[in-house]
Design a protein around this nucleic acid. Structure first.
Length: 501
RNA sequence: GCAGUUAUAGCUCAGUUGGUUAGAGCGCCUGGUUGUGGACCAGGAGGUCGCAGGUUCGAGACCCGCUAACUGUACCA
């Protein structure tokens, strides 16, 4: 052996980008959110379903891993028998698989809700992760607009149950058939490849109205647009008349849903598919209006596009409309926190027969981030445990009994599990945010007493004490009680206002 | 994917036209205080200056390549 020290390999402790740890506060608030959303879904009659994280790649849809880039878009791996499996990238595709697999046994329409983690192998950004949580509800096997209307209203209920005030959010709704109507009017509904490609470009451009404004969209519909970094995006090369039509369409939103429908009807008059879409939205409007859900909650917005893949009828998006400032004072808008719509073709991939379906997907992770910045999380705070210090290790059983007594009364309590001295123990309690510290050393034990130190009161008192001698010897915010009174005394102290949240 | 910017301690960042042992604040640890959080005081740990090459007597700084992160943009079931 050489005398040189072998350099031991130490991996850098780090996480792949787009993945994040979830701390105690986040776990609790996220769980509370999920509970709230689930309760609303249950109220509407939806049933829970869980499916696995991995599915056969071919079941999830068009993102089949190929030999060159097996993990583009999805995380995929090969089973023993070389079949490709993928981590699910949404909850809709697994649901379609489930329905196709169990179709005969299900009560139709099948109404289920599901929450879970999904994974996407793509570039992360602010508010965008490679692993995140969604919470979906779908009605499968109904072509009725009532199903879409119900989801929009339920979504609105969810937002308000999460303490997002009416006006701070809005469910925006459009219809893919109306979008097709516009494309129809500018002669882009052809089956040829060129039309299909231009269609995509046009829809992408329309979807960017909120971010780029109508001037930016105009550029994307025409020649192309150069962004501030100098990168150039080629446009759809439409002629001026067509551009005007598309712009008029995306800006056709009015103050009331009825007025929007009227405006849209004029713009796409003569297109069969477009008129069908307007009829669908009109039907939804009747139902939502009758239930009292006005434009301040569910708003028809012609600029909503929502993905390019499978939607076939109404599409919707939940948007947070308030703005707040970040640490640097910049205005931050959260924007979309979920999407949904009708996808009549999805189950047909498996069954051959078309089964109409509609659903919504709430982006729990994004919504969480937004509510966190708003300070709107409820039920998030759990009181830290009372810490019982270990003054004499030989008395551990006694301290343990104190903790058990407190727990019996429903009070979080823990005996200090480390081996440091008292100073470190109180410091530990402080760092944990403990409300109280329980102390029983030799002196107390001799008199069958226990000392309770109130860390909240002590913290306030420390501001007026600059002398350490005084701080130490005055034993600030401490009381000594009879051992038998431990639980009742602590209950009494914790009921005081300064220990309430 | 494309473009721009950046990379120095756990965090936020200094580091002069290239010059000796690379700094500060905050945080962390220890002691002042063997039975007490904060404040204060004293001390301490922590860096292959992203990686690899080159220019130079000499590189944290200059040049080339790579990597990563950030921002914008594209894509987004």
């Amino acid at each position: 052996m050489s005398k040189k020290k072998q350099k031991t390999f130490r991996p850098k402790a780090r996480l792949p980008r787009g993945f994040g740890d979830v701390n105690a506060h986040e776990v609790r608030t996220m769980a509370a959110m999920i509970k709230t959303i689930g309760e609303v879904y249950e109220l509407y009659g939806f049933e829970p379903l869980e499916t696995p994280a991995l599915e056969f790649a071919e079941c999830l849809g068009k993102f089949l891993p190929d030999a060159d880039r097996p993990n583009e878009g999805v995380f995929a791996l090969q089973d023993d028998d070389e079949q490709w499996m993928s981590l699910r990238y949404d909850l809709t595709a697994p649901t379609a698989r489930f329905v196709a697999e169990n179709y005969d046994a299900l009560a139709k329409p099948f109404r289920r809700y599901q929450t879970g983690t999904v994974w996407r192998n793509e570039k992360p950004g602010p508010g965008r992760f490679r692993q995140f949580v969604q919470f979906d509800a779908d009605t499968i096997g109904s072509a009725e607009m009532a199903a879409d209307a119900e989801l929009a209203m339920m979504w609105s209920d969810v937002m308000e149950k999460l303490d997002i005030a009416r006006g701070d959010y809005v469910i925006r709704m459009n219809n893919r058939k109306i979008l097709d109507g516009v494309l129809d009017k500018i002669n882009l509904l052809g089956d040829d490849e060129a039309s299909a490609a231009t269609r995509l470009t046009v829809m992408r451009a329309m979807d960017k109205l909120d971010r780029l404004g109508s001037d930016g969209v105009r550029l994307l519909l025409g020649e192309g647009r150069k962004d501030e970094s100098g990168d150039y995006t080629k446009g759809a090369q439409l002629d001026a008349a067509s551009i005007d039509k598309v712009i008029a369409f995306v800006e056709a939103g009015k103050d009331t849903n009825k007025a929007t429908l009227t405006a849209l009807a004029e713009l796409i008059a003569g297109s069969e598919i477009g008129e069908a879409g307007i009829a669908e939205l009109a039907e939804i409007d009747v139902l939502t209006s009758a239930a009292g859900y006005a434009e301040d909650r569910i708003c028809f917005d012609p600029s909503i596009v929502r993905g390019l893949g499978y939607y076939s009828g109404p599409v919707m998006e939940a948007e947070l409309t308030f703005e707040i400032k970040d640490e640097k004072g910049n205005l931050v808008r959260f924007g979309s926190v979920g999407g949904g719509g009708r996808y009549d073709g999805l189950v047909a991939r498996f069954k051959g027969i078309e089964i109409p379906a509609t659903g919504i997907s709430i982006g729990v992770s994004r919504l969480y981030a937004a509510l966190d910045k708003l300070g709107k999380h409820k039920a998030a705070s759990v009181r830290a445990p009372v810490i019982i210090t270990v003054m004499d290790k030989s008395e551990r059983a006694t301290y343990q009994q104190m903790a058990m007594d407190l727990r019996q009364a429903g009070i979080r309590a823990e005996v200090y599990m480390g081996s440091s001295g008292m100073k470190a123990q109180v410091k530990y309690a402080d760092k944990r945010g403990a409300p109280l510290v329980v102390i029983q050393g030799e002196d107390e034990r001799a008199n069958d007493e226990i000392t309770i130190k109130d860390l909240v009161v002590g913290s306030k008192a420390s501001k007026d004490i600059t002398d350490n001698e005084e701080w130490r010897t005055s034993q600030v915010a401490q009381i000594t009680i009879k051992s038998a009174d431990l639980v009742s005394k602590i209950q009494e102290i914790l009921a005081k206002p300064h220990h309430q949240h």
